[in-house]
Write a protein that binds this DNA or RNA. Structure first.
Lengths: 230, 230
DNA sequence: AAAAATTAGAGGGAAAACCCTCGGTTAAAA
DNA sequence: TTTTAACCGAGGGTTTTCCCTCTAATTTTT
């Protein structure tokens, strides 16, 4: 059997223009072959199931509609543990990085990185199984792996509260939705504030938005603010 | 003089990997020549000032550190009115679109568009001065131009309030920062709610974040939530 | 099985945010 | 110029949120 000199990659990102461009860019750099691209995690998984040849490395965006990067990586690691992964994301948040390391990401790259870094990342991951941008990141990675840096655990109720948090609903309305009492919501909120070292509902709302516990419909809020219906 | 068959473009986007990839992609499509790229508006303008030849079309991202797409376009239209512009943004918000049309953008394209659309957009803008993705967008564009769709006016005080809105500061603290009283803040908030058809401070906070009236430091909130210092 | 920790929820009081009305000022329009 | 309209801020009352304490249930450790 002849050794394939090419690293085969797949890439899931909802920004088609960005996705196609990046794939075309890295293919032009040579040594890399882009076989599969998808708009979100679910699409990617479907394609992998029917693929003649699984990719060596999967590149994943975090924010995607339908199935996001976290869920997708979780599924991939469970179904095809040997496939390597590179997270490609737009914003710098240790929360995301830690979460991804815990799930088992093999590399993590920001979209504002030096363009040449992506080829190196893919090659390093393919060869050694890991990619660090620098020594500091490697140090951080090791600490997370050793359990020295942990994400606070967020319970089901708390997640549900976070979902309603960046909303114009009052606690009594949220209580109805969550089938509980105002007092329960207040407790939920107080505990979250404590474990996240965040002060007040607005802070929690920002947290929820930034880290994907809640989404806001940009398009809708835009229309409301302009005064168009719906 | 020989006619230059190539459309010269410049592109400002803080995501270097995305920027380089997209420029490389469109150059490969042919007929387009990428001369200048920058991390933000200020960098772009500096480069344009010393450029031997100004580009035909400038592509702009909206969210950029330092100088964002709005400020940049405003400056460009005032200094070099003949340069055409194409806004390239990740998220769909009529608010942004209207603002850009008002400033004088020649085209507006989402990053999740069909990759081929970008070449067409650049060519159409270069030739005719405008690009619409479809008839609906053209219709919308005309309505904005005719003043049939307007953005509510936001006063200085209101903008300042919006800046502090997605914050854990209480109104009394904000009042100190803004050198005014709690009552003034409350009035400010009530008027904003009315003109934006938004209910409550949290809603306004979401609005402020989404439309660039305030920024949150993702990195900082992430560290706080994990419990690391700073 | 006892002890400790985690999670959930209630009470009550203090503080902050919200709502409605109104007067005064400035700026634009008739 | 008179009228309109937008902007800013105050008063006062209501609702919501926040904070502190305490109890109960469940889970984990020892």
């Amino acid at each position: 059997m002849i050794k394939d000199p090419c690293i085969h990659v797949a890439y899931a990102d909802d920004h088609a223009l960005v996705r196609t461009s990046i794939l075309s860019y890295i293919q032009n750099l040579g040594g890399i072959c882009a076989d599969i691209e998808a708009n979100n995690g679910l699409e990617l998984i479907k394609q992998l199931e029917y693929a003649a040849k699984l990719p060596d490395v999967v590149m994943l965006d975090i924010n995607m509609p339908g199935m996001d990067g976290f869920e997708t990586l979780q599924y991939l690691k469970q179904k095809w543990p040997h496939i390597k992964s590179l997270i490609l994301t737009a914003f710098e948040a240790e929360w995301h990085l830690i979460k991804m390391i815990n799930i088992g990401a093999n590399g993590y790259l920001l979209k504002n990185c030096n363009p040449r870094a992506i080829k190196q990342a893919l090659e390093t991951i393919h060869e050694f199984g890991f990619y660090y941008a620098d020594a500091a990141e490697e140090h951080f990675y090791n600490k997370v792996q050793d359990g020295k840096i942990k994400l606070p655990h967020i319970s089901e109720k708390e997640m549900e509260y976070l979902k309603y948090c960046p909303t114009d609903m009052s606690y009594s309305q949220i209580a109805v939705q969550m089938n509980t009492t105002v007092k329960a919501i207040e407790g939920c909120m107080a505990r979250l504030c404590e474990k996240l070292h965040i002060k007040g509902r607005i802070g929690l709302a920002m947290f929820a938005i930034q880290f994907g516990y809640s989404k806001i419909d940009t398009k809708a809020i835009s229309k409301i603010a302009i005064g168009l219906k719906k």
